[in-house]
């Protein structure tokens, strides 16, 4: 129990506003208790953009999403859409991780603009459980459009970005940088709308090989 909650309980008043209770959005548990604890709504925000910024590739940046994606694809039967991933999402690994392959779509596009367009369309329709987009866009407007589309369709929206984007602000609800760590992934919360600020934690990755 936090100090604020303790105080609230002592006063015995439900009229006391706690900053962290403000604007709590619906969320999908990440499957990692430590991570859920620092995110608003205790999970990946539904209907808002989540930015993931790995410093290098191959550090568990995708495995981090597997518990949530598994819940969406296998339990809820909702499509998962990979848009312009940098490499081939390896079907044997996805199937082994418990994702239903019939629910996974990969979209290849000629350029970044088409990729963002596809993400926007998919998010807006609200049928997909999650959209994973790899984009190099830096301008504010395209990101804002994605954020709006995610809001409209109430889906999970993950945007993978390059570390250089950290120089600029972002309309995303959650912004995390990802660093390698032995048997885990180090997550630094750069921004979490309505949640903890500037937390840093280690997330154990079970299937880290």
């Amino acid at each position: 129990m936090s100090r604020a909650q303790a105080i609230a309980q002592e006063i015995g008043s439900s009229h006391l506003w706690l900053g962290r209770q403000l604007a709590v959005s619906p969320a999908q548990s990440t499957g990692f208790a430590a991570l859920d604890n620092v995110l608003p709504g205790r999970g990946w925000p539904i209907g808002a953009l989540t930015e993931l910024i790995p410093t290098v590739e191959g550090i568990g940046e995708l495995r981090l999403l597997l518990p949530a994606l598994r819940a969406l694809s296998r339990d809820q039967g909702r499509p998962i859409v990979f848009i312009r991933p940098p490499h081939v999402p390896y079907a044997p690994a996805l199937a082994r991780a418990g994702l239903s392959l019939t629910s996974i779509i990969r979209i290849e596009t000629r350029d970044d603009e088409d990729a963002r367009w596809a993400a926007e369309q998919t998010l807006r329709e609200g049928v997909a459980g999650a959209v994973l987009l790899w984009s190099r866009a830096d301008a504010d407007l395209p990101l804002r459009r994605l954020q709006l589309a995610a809001q409209e369709g109430q889906a999970l929206a993950f945007l993978y970005r390059h570390p250089r984007c950290l120089q600029n602000a972002s309309p995303a609800a959650v912004r995390l940088t990802l660093n390698p760590a032995p048997g885990a992934i180090r997550i630094t919360v750069i921004k979490a709308r309505g949640g903890t600020r500037e937390a840093s934690l280690l997330c154990p990755l079970r299937e880290a090989a």
Partner: peptide
Amino acid sequence: VERPLWLL
């Protein structure tokens, strides 16, 4: 057996 998520 385990497989990586990115195939290169």
